[in-house]
Every structure is written in C-alpha cells, then in structure tokens.
Design a protein around this nucleic acid. Structure first.
Length: 576
RNA sequence: GCCCCCGUGGCUCAAUUGGAUAGAGUAUCUGACUUCGAAUCAGAGGGUUGUAGGUUCAAGUCCUACCGGGGGUACCA
C-alpha cells in the first residue's frame, strides 16, 4: 500500500499509548538483559498493557513480569525491579513504579498530556485513527433483509451494527465497502410476488388464489393498487408464470426503493447492492459446481444435488432439487447462492476479508458456508460472521412477535418518524451484540428525552454554547492556548480520556462498536464535571490566558465527541 | 436430543478480550444555580458475578457438569 500506509504508520500508530508503553518495556527488557540484570531469553512478541483502573496504579499497567516468572524461574516482583530501572526515560512517562505481585505501573506526565491537546485539535476528524488494517480491502455485508416488505426494527439492529462497524474499520485503517445482498432469487420473493398478484387480480375482480406462504400485510395491498395503476389489466392477460415474474421483479424494485429511503433516514448507506439473481446468469454457479464435484464434495441422488464436507455434522446439505423448485435449472437453494457469493467476494472481487452481519437465527448456516469456502480452497478465516442476538419488541408490556410473513411488525419508518435516528442508533449500540435487545416501544417513545444519547449530545451543544459565549466576549478561538496552564484534576481527567480514543477505536475495531457509546458517555461525563469545577470563560483580566487554554481543551473535547458520534452515525448538534 | 447466545447491586447493561479494590445508567436518599446551557454536577446506600468443580502466579472472562432464560435445528430463506 505504498507510502500512504507508511505515513499512517508513522503518524498514527504511535497515538496508541499502549503500544508506546509496550515498546518502552521491550527496550527495558533488552537493556536489562544486556546489563546482565536479567538472563538472556526471548522477549514475547506481544507485551500486554492495560489501562490502570485505579489512580494509585498509574495510567497504564503491564503484568508482563508475572508471565515471565515461569520462563525465568524467578519471582515476578524481582523481575519487575530488575526491568524498571532500564526502561528508557521519555517525556511521555512521568514515572514507572513496581507494584506487587509484579506489575509495572506507568504514570503519564501531566505536562506531556496537556501538550497533546493542541495536537488533538489539529488532527480533528483524523484523531483516533489507528492503522491496524494497513489498507486491506474488506467488505461488510449487512441488513440484506429479504426484499419482501419494509425494514423492521429487527433489521435496524443489523443496520446500525454493520454501518458502525464499517465506519470503525475505516478509522482503523481498512478500505471498506458496504454491501446489501438482495435475495431476489428465492422462494420468499416469489411468494411475495404471488401475493401482490393475487391482490392485484382482486382489484380487477379476478380471482388468483393467495399463496399459502404469502405476505398478508396491508402494504402488499397498497403495492397491488400501485401495480394496477402501472400495468393496467395487462398482467391478467399473460401466462401466470410470466405475470408472477414480472410483478415480482417490479415489487422487488419498489421495496428496494423504500428500503433505501428508510435506511437513508437512519443514516445508513451502501456502496453496492449485490443481486442474488446475477449469480445464475453468468455461469458462475456451474463453474463452482464443477470445482466442488472435482473435489468430491458433491453427491447426487433422486435428481437432487447435495453438498457434503467432513467438517459438517450433517451428512449433506441440499444445493438443488426438482422437489424444491419445479425448474431447478432456473434456481437452486440458498446454500448454492451462498457458495457463489463467497467466491464472488473473496475471489472475483478480491476482498481480503468478508464480514457477514447476521441475526443469531442464522447461526446454523455458518459451518456450511465455512465448509464451502474450505472446499473451494479458500481460507475460511477470511470469512467473519457477526451474529447478533435478535431484537424483541415490547409494547404495553406485551411481547410483539414480529415477522413480515405474519404481517405483524413495527417498521423502522414508523420509529424513525417518531423518535428520530439518533436515539435509535445510540440505543442499539449500547450493548454487545451477544445480548438480546429488549426494545420497549412505549419507553423508547415516551422517555426518548432521557435516552443516554441526549446526555452526550448535550455535552456537545453545551460546549458549542460556551464557545459562542467566548466569541461574544472577544476570544479568538483560532488562537491556541497554553497547555501548561491545564493542571486542574478535572482538566487532566478529561485529557486522559481524550488520549485513549485510539485505543477505544482499536478495541471497537474488533467488531465491538458498543465501546464507542460507552466512551462517548464517559467523555461527556468528564466534560460536565470539568465544566462545573472550572470556569472556562472568565472576565477577569488575570485569567485570560487560563480561559484560552480551557477553551482549547473544550474545543478538543467537542471535536472528539463529534468524531465518536459520527462513527456511530449520530448527529453532533450545535444547539438542541 | 444436538448447536449457538445470555445469566453481574431492585431494574437495564459495561468491564480494553486472562490482570490489581467488578464499574456506569436507572430507581431511592442528601446536597449544589445572583457570572459560560441544571437535558448538569457532588455525595450516600446497594455485589459470594446462576450453582458446583477444574485449569494458573492471576478467572466475571477459559474448561467440564448442572440449573434457569432466549434462539436455531425442513428437499424454507
């Protein structure tokens, strides 16, 4: 990736203080060995460094000496004492302390910390970037809800997870493409099309039976109405198959247009829309079937074709069968599509990694797709499956069971119209994806002003307000303040947190976007505390310099808050 | 039956992925605005991290069994 990634490495990676401290420890270990204070041994490739949880433990701590104890056959405390004096002095670290049973504790230098504030301000939206990806191309495929109806709250979780993960990966140095997979070849869309056709026929007084697994929702009737305006009676005069095909295609287009719009209002956008159908028009499916057959991964009996693989518990998984689809040449089962799709992602389009954001109800499919990748000679580790637990909806204390096929669901549209994208996005990102989300509609609507998102946004607008006041009173915000004046405990606590953004992004890049909402809340809290303890805009002549320093800190905080909110797709308003 | 996820103060959830004294919000109680936005702040109480074992210097985190809740397990997608 040439010079750009070199640049990033030099400029951005050291922003992770943890990394720098790990380097210091490594150099300390080397020096201790050279000085003969420690015997010769191989220094571990990764040196663990964590944030100190208590002020007494310093800002960062490493338990490395505990794990070295076994190798060196020496007490961890004694190892730590041997290393500590050899850790090179830097302006970043004020002191290194050894604490039982063998921790190395690092306290950052307050002056150094304060001097980072203008740098944060200068970096702006770039602050926090870490180059973990080195420009690797990855694809995040998400939402991908069947195009058979409106986007529901359930898909909303998928949408905000996928979108935020994509944004975070970009901040972590990856080249990211966001994709929506359109399942337009399966039986679901056909049932959808048949449903519209039935209602459409009814509109003209004709009778086409409603399919058994059809979609009873009111929106289908509305589609039928629109279809009647678009096509007139023409669909009634053509062969049934052709009519189904045409109205299905038309219906999918209609749905996708509204899906695109609904998601856009949630601030979710896609770079590409991959249609399942396209896999069966270019010969890809046949090509891959030949590969699998050659590898002995295909079995056939009763005219049906199955995929088998030693890694699978089940004997085999169906790929195509005349009993599923009357005309199997037209379309196999969804596993076949998944096989084409993974090849398309990893080989044809050459992504180094393909990330799938799936509801936990699809977890059973993971081994199959993995096995298929393996069978095609691809490293299954390049496929990442993020399984989030489903959203259960509560209304009036009652659980609402949602599904488009039952016609009972709450649309994303309704919720966005009612409470807006910010509370939805923030709320859905406050928890790990491993826990199911109990979404209480009444509470979400009624208490939306107590949603934690407002706490964070309020901090941002409060800063904006203070800055406006400052300008009114004649402060020039473009003029940097003197960081040396930032010495109050609440100022330093705030700065400390500003400095950890790169680490938070690095952790969040491990597919854990909820760290950002947590961080945003902490940062907001620290600012509020600082605001209460320190007068920012002072009228006293002798405090002008101090005011300028604090204004600089406030601006940096505002910038970081905005950055974090933008990463999770939440607006950072100037007023509210 | 088998597979996946969860079980942490009254309630909803965190815990930088195995590190030191388990943290927030909410609820309850007490306090703080004649100067920058009170949608705010400060303080208090509240815990054997479902149970029982195990792994090691170290377990909320990993392993085993069990209990409880949710989801999956079609020639559907």
């Amino acid at each position: 990736m040439g010079s750009r990634s070199q640049d990033q490495l030099r400029l951005e990676e050291p922003e992770m203080i943890r990394k720098q401290i790990a380097d210091l420890i490594r150099r300390g270990l080397e020096a201790a060995q050279q000085a003969g204070d420690l015997p010769s041994f191989e220094i571990p490739a990764i040196i663990p460094v964590t944030l100190g949880r208590h002020a007494a433990h310093g800002d960062y701590a490493s338990p490395i000496c505990m794990s070295l104890a076994r190798v060196l056959r020496r007490a961890p405390l004694s190892i730590a004492q041997a290393v500590a004096p050899h850790i090179p002095a830097t302006e970043m670290v004020r002191q290194v302390q050894v604490a039982p049973p063998g921790y190395l504790n690092f306290a950052l230098d307050e002056g150094w910390m304060a001097r980072q504030v203008p740098r944060i301000l200068e970096a702006g939206e770039r602050w926090g970037n870490v180059n973990l990806g080195h420009g690797a191309r990855v694809q995040v495929e998400f939402v991908s809800a069947n195009p058979t109806g409106p986007i529901t709250i359930g898909s909303a979780r998928n949408a905000v997870l996928g979108d935020s993960i994509a944004a975070i990966l970009e901040a972590a140095g990856y080249q990211v493409e966001r994709e929506y997979y359109v399942n337009d070849a399966g039986s679901k869309v056909r049932h959808f099309g048949e449903s519209i056709l039935s209602r459409y026929a009814a509109h003209f007084g004709a009778d086409i039976p409603f399919p058994e697994q059809g979609y009873p929702g009111q929106y289908v009737t509305e589609f039928a109405q629109k279809a009647a305006e678009t096509f007139g009676r023409s669909l009634l005069d053509m062969p049934r198959d052709a009519a189904v095909r045409q109205i299905t295609e038309w219906g999918v287009t209609q749905v996708l247009a509204s899906v695109r719009e609904d998601l856009a209002d949630l601030r979710v956008h896609f770079d590409t829309w991959q249609h399942e159908k396209d896999f069966y028009t270019g010969g890809l499916f046949d090509e891959l079937m030949d590969k699998l057959r050659a590898g002995g991964y295909v079995v056939e009996h009763d005219d049906a074709v199955w995929f088998r693989h030693p890694a699978l518990k089940k004997d085999a998984v169906l790929i195509r069968s005349p009993r599923v689809i009357p005309n199997p040449a037209e379309r196999p089962t969804y596993l076949a599509s998944d096989i084409c799709y993974l090849w398309d992602k990893l080989v044809r389009r050459g992504f180094e990694r393909a990330i799938y954001v799936w509801g936990a109800d699809h977890h059973g499919d993971v081994p199959r797709v993995r096995a298929a990748a393996q069978a095609l000679g691809l490293d299954p580790k390049r496929l990442v499956f993020l399984l989030y637990q489903l959203v259960t909806l509560r209304r009036g204390g009652q659980k609402v069971r949602m599904s488009k096929s039952s016609g009972e669901f709450v649309t994303l549209r309704d919720l966005v119209d009612e409470i807006g994208p910010d509370p939805i996005r923030f709320m859905l990102l406050t928890r790990t994806m491993d826990v199911k989300f109990d979404f209480d509609l009444d509470l979400a609507v009624e208490q939306s002003d107590r949603n934690p998102v407002y706490y964070v946004q309020y901090a941002h607008t409060r800063i904006a307000g203070v800055l406006r006041t400052a300008v009114q009173r004649g402060f020039d915000l473009s003029q940097p303040g003197d960081p040396a004046l930032l010495t109050h405990p609440s100022e330093l606590a705030l700065i400390r947190r500003l400095l950890t953004l790169p680490e938070v992004i690095a952790v969040a890049a491990n597919y854990a976007p909820h760290h950002l909402t947590t961080y945003a809340g902490e940062l907001a809290s620290l600012f509020h505390a600082f605001y209460h303890e320190c007068r920012i805009v002072s009228d006293r002549p002798e405090e002008q310099e101090l005011s300028r320093a604090r204004l600089m800190l406030s601006q940096a905080t505002k910038s970081v808050l905005a950055r974090v909110l933008h990463l999770i797709g939440v607006d950072a308003p100037e007023r509210m």
